[in-house]
Amino acid sequence: MTRMDSSPHVTRRHVLVLTGAAAVAAGTGLLPSIAAADKAAVEAAIKKAVGDASTMSGRITLDLPQIAENGNTVPIGIEVDSPMTESDYVKSVHIFAEGNPNPEVASLHFTPANGVAKASTRMRLLRTQNVVAVAKMSDGSVYRETVEVKVTIGGCGG
C-alpha cells in the first residue's frame, strides 16, 4: 500500500481502495471508517499507559487464533523476550483492541519473580480487528506488536 500512495495512477489506486474497503466490509459487516476512529482511541490509550516513549518492534510474541470461532472468548498468549532479572525485566504489557467499543483489554504487571514474561488470558472481540500489545521494560524502553484476528459472526453459533 505504501507504494500505491506515491503512485500518480489515480484510477488504479481508486479501484484498489474500493476493493479493499469492500473486503473489510465483507469481513466485518461494518464500514472501515469506524475502525479508523478506534485506531485513534488505541493510540491515545497507549499514550496514557506508557507515556510518550517511542515504540520499537520485536521482542513480543502474540499467540492469537487467525480466525476466532466466537468473539466472546478469544484466547491470547503473550510472551516478551527478557532475562527477567532484578536489573532487566518486563514491567508491564498492555493489550488493546482497535475494533472494540473501548480500546483497553488488560494490563499485565510482571516482576522478576515471574522468571519469564509469559501470560495468557481470554478476551472479547466485537469483530474482525487488530489486537495491539505494548510492553514496557524496566529500562523504560517500549515495544509494540500488532496481530489481526478475524472474528466469525453469524450462523447458528454467532
Binding site: N72, T73, V74, M84, A97, N100, N102, E104, V105, A106, S107, L108, H109, F110, T111, A113, N114, G115, V116, K118, A119, S120, T121, R122, M123, R124, L125
Partner: peptide, 21 residues
C-alpha cells in the same frame, strides 16, 4: 509477584495464567 488490570473486554469467567520462578 503478578497483577493485572482488567477491562470489560476480558471474557466472562476470566482465565489468567502466568509463570513463577
Amino acid at each position: 509477584v503478578f497483577s493485572a488490570d482488567w477491562y470489560p473486554a476480558v471474557s466472562a469467567n476470566p482465565y489468567m495464567a502466568f509463570h513463577l520462578r
